[in-house]
């Protein structure tokens, strides 16, 4: 039989995390991501050293991750938008204390309790901060079930390499839909964490993991150190994908599942002889600024499409910096735009 299996995006995240060596999962049920804790609760207890803990809240879950990852383990938590709001405190602490971990946000409609339909309205929260203080969160946005698996696997590596929290954001329907997926092998070699992970003081001086630095000068120095790391991440970890952008005059920018609607639209426009292409940010932070800038010359205009009232569009405008028009089209509240309405909206600007 083919090596591929048919999986929901959420299941793919869970399986891929296990392949990446994550044995510790802490979470709290919320639709539309509950398949992840369900999958983990079946699998992890069967793995030596594995544990699935259902936390009492998302506040607690992220702090359990903080503890487990501080012991040097690969640990993960997942949730959907309202639960991610509760995790923001923990994420800020984790970023400051430089503890590597992975968080998955299967986004739903908001604000408030909102609904369980897919949205992309958490962009500001996760890309621009969310928690308090000077920090950045690496944010990856898959657009297929295969990419859900691949980026989950990579997220753990990025987290370990830079000692940062990494978040995967997926729209609710990406978590729920099924596609064939192939998994990487079980990871067996990991970055050495012995210089910082808490393992007891048998062989070394006491180590500390903390986020409190009372003296302003020391705190500033620490923040500068974090930002040197962030600069490195911006240099090395920008990810994006292009579709028919060679010579394209209309550059559609869309991430996640909606980029697949955009593909449909671009195919149609190309059929009509209209030179359109897609630039799909895969890493929302670090944002593909340079890739966007490189299209300014050829572009008549940029067309940003999001399942929100317009959040990433602000980053596109910063990158384009007034050199060319940046138009926006979005649906929100959990409505997925159809190719036809996206097409009509692109055509308005032709």
């Amino acid at each position: 039989m083919s090596k591929k299996v048919l999986m929901k995006g959420n299941e793919a995240v869970a399986e891929s995390a296990i392949r990446a060596g994550c044995k510790l999962y802490f979470g709290y049920p919320i639709t539309p991501q509950s398949e992840i804790p369900e999958y983990m609760s079946r699998k992890l207890p069967q793995i030596p050293g594995g544990a699935y803990i259902q936390a009492e809240t998302e506040v607690s879950a992220i702090n359990m991750v903080y503890g487990a990852a501080s012991a040097g383990a690969r640990a993960m938590t997942t949730s959907s938008s309202p639960g991610i709001s509760l995790m923001m405190e923990g994420i800020s602490y984790i970023a400051c204390a430089e503890v590597p971990c992975v968080i998955v946000n299967v986004m739903r409609g908001g604000p408030g309790l909102g609904n369980i339909s897919p949205e992309q309205a958490d962009y500001f929260q996760v890309v621009k901060g969310g928690g308090h203080g000077n920090y950045r969160l690496v944010v990856l946005a898959p657009s297929s079930v295969q990419e859900m698996a691949d980026l989950t696997y990579d997220a753990f590596d990025i987290a370990d390499r830079y000692r940062v929290p990494v978040m995967l954001v997926a729209e609710g329907n990406l978590g729920q839909m099924m596609e064939p997926v192939e998994f990487k092998e079980l990871k067996t070699e990991f970055i050495d964490k012995s210089d910082w992970a808490l393992t007891g003081t048998q062989n070394h001086e006491p180590k500390i993991i903390t986020s409190i630095l009372l003296d302003p000068e020391t705190m500033e120095k620490h923040i500068h150190k974090l930002y040197e790391k962030y600069a490195l991440i911006e240099k090395n970890e920008v990810r994006f994908e292009e579709y028919l952008t060679d010579g394209a005059e209309i550059i559609i920018i869309a991430y996640g599942l909606i980029s697949r609607v955009a593909r449909n639209v671009v195919d149609k426009l190309r059929e009509e002889g209209i030179k359109a292409g897609i630039l799909r940010p895969v890493s929302l932070w670090p944002f593909p600024n340079e890739a966007i800038k490189s299209k300014i010359k050829q572009a008549k205009f940029f067309f940003v499409c999001e399942m929100s009232m317009g959040q990433m569009v602000e980053d596109v405008r910063l990158a384009v910096n007034g050199a060319k028009p940046v138009h926006f089209f979005g649906r929100c509240g959990g409505v997925v735009p159809t190719p036809i309405e996206m097409y009509d909206n692109v055509k308005r600007y032709l």
Binding site: N173, M177, L257, I258, R260, V261, R263, N264, K268, V336, P337, T338, P339, I340, Y343
Partner: peptide
Amino acid sequence: IQPWEQKFTNL
């Protein structure tokens, strides 16, 4: 059929 699979037949 998902939105990203829809065809442009009725345009």
